[in-house]
Simulated assay, not measured.
Amino acid sequence: MPDLMDTYIENRWMVQPNHANNLDTAHGGNVLKWMDEVGAMSAMRFSGETCVTAHMDEVNFKRPIPVGDIALVRGYVYRAGETSVRARVRVFREEPRNGRQELTTESYMVFVAIDDDREPTPVPEFTVSSERGEELRAEALSDEPR
């Protein structure tokens, strides 16, 4: 049975000019794409199935990520239904020279596991077996939009 910590994914992208808008900061569309990719990887790691995006809750862009800085995207599954998986995905601006991080964007996402015929398929029971996993799940549940 997959555990929350098995689904924890962390990816980094150096923000380059081709990722930027006219203000030389990460284009919101690129940030959303990176979030969707990390969320889907977490959902697939949990379910063992292909997962498609079904819903993305409100996304607020709190701070920009300038060209030359790193977009650090963290995601994990914190809850599961019969065929759906909920993931929390957060983006941080990381300074490459010192590693300092600031939260820039976050969202809650729902993915649906599908079979080879692209029909919804059941996902495993959700478990949490570590203290860190319990902390992440409690944080996600307390901040989850209602």
Rank of each mutant, 00 (worst) to 15 (best):
E106W: 02
T50C: 03
H19W: 12
A138L: 10
R132P: 00
N18P: 00
V128Y: 06
A113Q: 11
L136A: 07
G29W: 02
A87K: 00
I65Y: 06
D69E: 14
N30H: 12
R45Y: 02
K62N: 02
M5L: 14
D24M: 11
V112F: 13
T104C: 12
D3Y: 11
S107T: 15
P96T: 02
T25N: 15
D3M: 08
G28M: 05
Y108I: 03
M41V: 06
R97H: 12
R146H: 01
T25Q: 11
R118A: 15
I70G: 01
E144M: 12
R146W: 00
P66L: 11
E131K: 11
P120V: 12
S129V: 01
A40R: 07
F111S: 05
V59H: 03
A26T: 01
E139Q: 15
T7W: 04
F46N: 03
N22C: 05
R45S: 10
L4W: 03
A87V: 15
P120H: 14
T83M: 05
A138K: 13
N98I: 09
V110D: 02
F46H: 10
D57A: 10
E139T: 13
P96I: 04
I9L: 14
T83L: 06
A140T: 03
N21K: 10
G48L: 05
R86F: 06
L4A: 15
G39S: 03
T104S: 08
N21G: 11
R79L: 07
I114C: 11
E95R: 15
N98R: 13
N21I: 10
L23H: 15
G99Q: 07
T25M: 08
T104I: 01
G29T: 04
V123I: 07
E106H: 14
A140H: 03
T7C: 01
S47M: 09
S42W: 01
M44W: 00
W34I: 03
T83D: 05
Y8R: 12
D36F: 09
V89F: 05
R88T: 00
T83C: 10
E94K: 09
A140W: 02
N98C: 11
E131C: 02
Y8I: 04
R74S: 05
R118H: 15
K62S: 06
G81H: 14
N21E: 12
M56R: 08
T127Q: 05
M56G: 05
Y76V: 01
E102M: 14
S129C: 00
T7P: 00
W13S: 09
P64R: 05
L23S: 10
F46S: 08
Q16G: 00
I70Q: 03
G68C: 11
Y108S: 04
L32T: 11
E95C: 10
T105Y: 04
V85E: 02
V73D: 10
P66D: 12
P96K: 02
A43C: 05
T105N: 13
Y108N: 06
R97A: 13
P120C: 14
H55S: 04
L103M: 13
M5H: 01
H19V: 09
P124K: 07
K33R: 15
A71Y: 06
E10F: 00
D3H: 09
M41R: 08
L136S: 07
V15N: 08
E131D: 13
R132F: 06
P17N: 10
E102T: 13
